[in-house]
Each structure stands twice: as structure tokens, then as C-alpha cells.
Design a binder for these strands. Structure first.
Lengths: 246, 246
DNA sequence: GCGTGAGGCGTACGCTGTACACTTGTCACG
DNA sequence: CGTGACAAGTGTACAGCGTACGCCTCACGC
């Protein structure tokens, strides 16, 4: 067994040690700062040593995603489809929040690993067991999309002013000036972004509640799924309607 | 004015030429292969010359997204909110399909540029003009999320077998074997993935119709929005219901 | 005609992933 | 206990990346 600089014997490397260290490192440093070299250093090993345990960086990322999937609660056995889906998604969401890198990692993966397929299979299974036709289950899973993983579809963070990051603290005057400018340039965004507080009756700006937004969209979709399910929706009739010649 | 190797005078570089060439290059080579060096080469210029026109690679990507946004149709003036949103989203989707790199580029952007804010502002404006309360408009935009850009939330491509890319063509036997294995390991996915064809009555596997899936999810959401809008939904009552103490 | 400033050039640095050949450590078996 | 084989870890090297910094040079206003 090899020894480190202190001459103490060192635990052997193995795939899960590599993956778990990578996960921990990505948690603290962010996915961009996770390099093979940095990871090797963390494991007190030369970079190339990692390649005995992962094929390449792609494989490392795949493995990290698998670690994450294992943290997601298994489907609740007795629940009806709606609660089963809801629980699973919200559990996935929690796992994703523990690992901020995960969203990017999952989305950048080119091909699904067995673990990913298994995860998606369980969703399909829940819908089918709930009496969904394969047809409806298919479309419904597409509609769920990233939300299956608990992704919030960011991309609209009304509370984020443009380029207001580098300066750690803004003077109240500067803030007010920026707000005024925002209001001028993007009046609707400002209206909408500050809406949540108004309706609450609260005064302070507290940003928006990601969890609430996530569940809002999720339940909107689940409501829609339920309605279609009840009324025996089928894609054939919709297609016919849109394209009667066929 | 400088001359190139042939001694012919060369058109001067400028920001839009840089951005448009970058877009074209990303279209053909993919975003991963788009490097400052490769882009410079395409423009017949030394890499560092680009930095007189874009601040850094981040700025380049921001600029490319702006080029893309300009390709999206402006909001239809006379339309009701639902059609206005639908049209805009579907137009965005078309732009995104012309530029496969765009999704990743948009999602990786840390802070919204003015063009992005303006785009989102127009969505907020459509909802508000349609009589949505700022509160509802806020949540609804979150629910729309990436679909505002026409993103399909891939992540579940039932037709993609794992690691079936490198070999360009599989023998029918190999395909059959793989299918059998898929069926064993992921029975629900197979059921659901092959559903669309069954219901169509067609026999050949044609993958699934992305456009259909996209509109399915979009309309599901729009239906939900409409319902909430009609019944005067407000986040205050929902929150109270969940958390009556407050 | 000449100064000036923007635009393009060249060099260099530190970082990345990883190919390839090498040594070392560990364990099964004679 | 000795040994051979195989797995694990090392070292060197390469091509590519983004970009800091200093220099040159060319078009243009005076």
C-alpha cells in the first residue's frame, strides 16, 4: 500500500470514495471548480490515479448523479399516483438543493445512465399503476420534464437586478436609483416581481419563495394531469382534431 | 487597415460581425467547440483581437443570446393574452431550434442582460394587459419557466437507448436484444415510450414528436392559468390555507 | 504632415483533460 | 516463504483553453 508524505499508510482509492469526495467538493466549491486535478489533490493522490476508477470526467459526473439519485426517497408504496409523484418530486427537489451542482450535471449528461433510466422508470410505473394509459403517461412525463428532478426552472428571477452582484453592498441611494431605472426600463417585471409582497401585506422585499413557486407549477400540472386522466384523454383524438386529413 | 496573408485589405472587425460569426459557428460546430481561438481563426484574426470587441467569453455568449432574441417575433398586438403568449413562445421555440446551442447558453448565463430582461418584461406585460393580477402573473411566469424560451425539458427521451450512439448502425439482432434488455430492466419506460405509436396505429418506431409534447405541456399550463385567472386566484388565500397560523 | 487612439498582433501564463509508459504494492498460489 | 501476476498509483507530456500585457501600425482629425 502506498504511503503519503507523512509516511502513514493511506486508504486505498475506490470508485465510491472518488465519487463521494467529488460530490462533497462540488458541494463546497461548485461544479466549475471541480477539476480532476483538484479532486486528486483532495484525495491526496496524483491526478492520473483517478483514471483507474473512472473512465473520464463524463463518467465521474455520471457517477456523481448516481450518488445523488440514491439520496432520493423511493416511491411511497401505498400512495395514490398523485401523492406518490408529488412526494417523489419534492424529495428529488430536496436532494437537488443539497447539491447545487446537480441540475447542471444532470442536464449536461448526453445519455441516460442506468440509474437515471431506473429513476424515470419509476415515474412511468407510478402513472401506469395509477391507471394512466401508456399514451397519457408518455405525454405527462414529458410535461413534467425537468420538474421530475425537482428543477426549478429559474430563468426569471425578478428580484435579481442586472449586474448587481459584484458590489457586496449597495448604498440605499444606489438601490433606489437602480429601482427607478428598472421601473423605467422594465415596468412590467417590476410590477410582477414586487407583487408577492403586496398581496401578503408585508412591506419588506423578501424575494420570492422558490418552494412556493415550484409547488405552484407542480400542482398546476398535476391538476391538469388529473383532469385529462379522468376524462379519458387520448393523443389520437387531439391529433385528429389538429390534422383532420390524417 | 490591416491586410491578411494574401495582401488583400480586410474588412474591419466589429461587435456584430464577431457575434454573428460566433452564432454561425456555434450552429455548425456546437457550443462546446466554439472557442475564442476557433472563432478568431474563422474571422481570420488573432485570438486576442476579439477582446477589443467583447469583454470576455461570457460577454460573447451574452451577445449571442441577444442575437437570438432579435430573431423572436415581437408580441402580436391585437391578440388576447393566451394567443399572444402562445405565439411568442412558439416563435421562441423556432429560434431555439435553429440554434441548438441556445438553450445551454441561456441557462448558463449568470445574470440577465437587458435584452433578456426586456424579453421577460414583454411576457409580464402580456399577462398584465390580459387582466392578470401582478400576483398571479408572477407565479404564472415562474410556472412557465424555461418554456418561456421554448425549451423542451428533454431529460426523458424514451426513444434513446443507453449508449447507443457510437455504433452508427446496429444489426437487427442487436437491436432486438437491446430492446429485450430494456424491457426487462425498464418495463414501464418501454411501455410508455412505445405508446405514441400504438395509439397512432402506426407500426414503425418514429420516436416522439417533440413539437407535440411541447404544445401539450404548454397548453396544459395555459389551461391552468386560464382557470386560475377566471376564478380570481390569489396567492394569499393559498398560503393561508397551507399555513393558517400566519 | 503629424499626433493620437483604436484595432490588431505576439508572447506568455496558468489552467484544463488525459494518453502512455513506468514503478510499486498486494494477494493468490506453489 | 517465495514468486509471479495483476491492480493501483506515478510521472511526464501534449494539445487546447481563456486571457493579461505590451507592442506595433494604420486611419483619421487637425
Amino acid at each position: 500500500m502506498s504511503r503519503n508524505a507523512d509516511g502513514r499508510t493511506r486508504v486505498r482509492l475506490n470508485r465510491s470514495r472518488v465519487l463521494e469526495t467529488a460530490v462533497a467538493l462540488a458541494d463546497t466549491l461548485g461544479i466549475d471548480a471541480l477539476s480532476m486535478r483538484r479532486l486528486a489533490q483532495e484525495l491526496d493522490v496524483v491526478p492520473m490515479a483517478l483514471y483507474k476508477h473512472v473512465a473520464d470526467k463524463e463518467d465521474l459526473l455520471d457517477g456523481m448523479v448516481e450518488v445523488l439519485i440514491r439520496e432520493i426517497d423511493p416511491p411511497a408504496p401505498g400512495a395514490d399516483w398523485r401523492n406518490a409523484i408529488r412526494q417523489r418530486v419534492l424529495s428529488a427537489r430536496q436532494a437537488l438543493q443539497r447539491h447545487a451542482w446537480a441540475r447542471q450535471a444532470i442536464e449536461s449528461r448526453a445519455r441516460p445512465t442506468p440509474a437515471v433510466l431506473e429513476y424515470q422508470d419509476s415515474f412511468a410505473g407510478i402513472f401506469l399503476a395509477g391507471g394512466f394509459t401508456p399514451d397519457l403517461a408518455h405525454h405527462v412525463m414529458h410535461a413534467l420534464g425537468g420538474r421530475m428532478w425537482g428543477f426549478t426552472q429559474e430563468l426569471f428571477d425578478g428580484s435579481a437586478a442586472p449586474a448587481a452582484e459584484a458590489p457586496p453592498a449597495l448604498t440605499p441611494e444606489a438601490q433606489a436609483a437602480m429601482f427607478a431605472q428598472m421601473q423605467e426600463l422594465y415596468p412590467n417585471i417590476v410590477t410582477v416581481a414586487t407583487a408577492a409582497q403586496h398581496d401578503d401585506g408585508s412591506v419588506v422585499a423578501h424575494g420570492c419563495d422558490d418552494q412556493f413557486e415550484f409547488e405552484f407549477a407542480l400542482d398546476l400540472l398535476l391538476d391538469g394531469f388529473e383532469r385529462l386522466h379522468r376524462q379519458g384523454w387520448s393523443s389520437a383524438q387531439v391529433r385528429k382534431q389538429h390534422d383532420p386529413a390524417r
